[in-house]
Design a binder for these strands. Sequence first.
DNA 1: CCTACCGATCGGTAGG
DNA 2: CCTACCGATCGGTAGG
Lengths: 218, 218
Amino acid sequence: MTINSPTSVPPAKPRGRPRKTLEEREDGNRKKELLSVAARLFRHQGFNATSTRDIAAAAGMRSGSPFYHFKSKGDLLFAVMEEGMRSALAKQVAARQTMQLSEPVLPSPRQQLHALVRQHFEVLLGSDSDFIPVMLYERRAITDEQRYTLTQLQRDYEAVWLPVLEALHTSGQLRCPVKLARLLIFGALNWSVQWFDCQQTESLDSLTDAAITLFINH
Amino acid sequence: MTINSPTSVPPAKPRGRPRKTLEEREDGNRKKELLSVAARLFRHQGFNATSTRDIAAAAGMRSGSPFYHFKSKGDLLFAVMEEGMRSALAKQVAARQTMQLSEPVLPSPRQQLHALVRQHFEVLLGSDSDFIPVMLYERRAITDEQRYTLTQLQRDYEAVWLPVLEALHTSGQLRCPVKLARLLIFGALNWSVQWFDCQQTESLDSLTDAAITLFINH
DNA sequence: CCTACCGATCGGTAGG
DNA sequence: CCTACCGATCGGTAGG
């Protein structure tokens, strides 16, 4: 913690040193708790400004114990990112299935984009949303090999968007070339983690509506 | 430097230990050199992953010498950010004056936005463009007081955009509410530092054209 | 601006 | 998972 003025970190879900009930101790819950605690600290203080001692203390462990679960601090960071991507991919698949089943007619490309944007805001700003921001803003700190793995997952995530953008481009509702549109749109959405205040009145629904009106004609 | 795999840093402008000619030594050039060297390292490795020894070495100094010019590492970071904002503001003023003088008729709101976007891409991606990315991506690492100063400068920078966006909203060329449009547009532009490759064929001009077609109707 | 140095903190490990 | 610990590195300073 050489940071000058650390942005105050929201209170942890499990604070202090939790009494270890027998049920908790046996399984891999401690490892998952370590992941979510690390995600929260990495997001709000940054990877390099968060010590493994910070993480251990926030998880109610001693300083050496995180290394029982993860080989190194870098591996813990990568695990946070990978978990974030796998969770985001799962949510994306679920959202698509829900949409296709519930609609009486097939959703329009515009409706599909709306659902994708809404779901992406949920991943970025919703509950349990520390993992993906860490992945987005700490990619410098992982190895090339790890970055390659994440890039593959991100490609899967973005693959769903491309046909939707293509359809909108063909119909004239999206005038920007698809490849650049994807980069610019993701930028607009991803940047929201820098300014969005979940205490504010602005809901993710109205935010999604606004974003769609910015990108799409008619 | 506890980073796992530091993104390779582009070669410094003045590499190694420059011979100190008499002209260089006397004035404040060393301080400015320290600023630009620190901006480059902070941008590519991050603030916390860059040691003051890294900076000193890249500037051809010994480890303690940066502290002759700056009280602390944090003050050096803040100086980089402030210099970036003042330079960006100066470029913005210059661009506006050029436009108003050269056009035979007053530029349309759309033309004004084009100029603002183009100028912002220059600040983010053009030559000597390490300062603003550092300001955008290392704000966690400065004090509240310093952040307040920067927020003021950023407000000045953004103030120029608002009337342009208002005019576009009134004329129906921008359907998104102005306040959110500003946040989303800046996000789309600022995120470009994550993916733009200046080696690529894509020019800042065509990038600007694409961005305008994404945001503006007709 | 350099030399020589300090106290603090950090990631990580051996052994249990 | 804890205890006890190590080597390395870091920001910063006194004195010139």
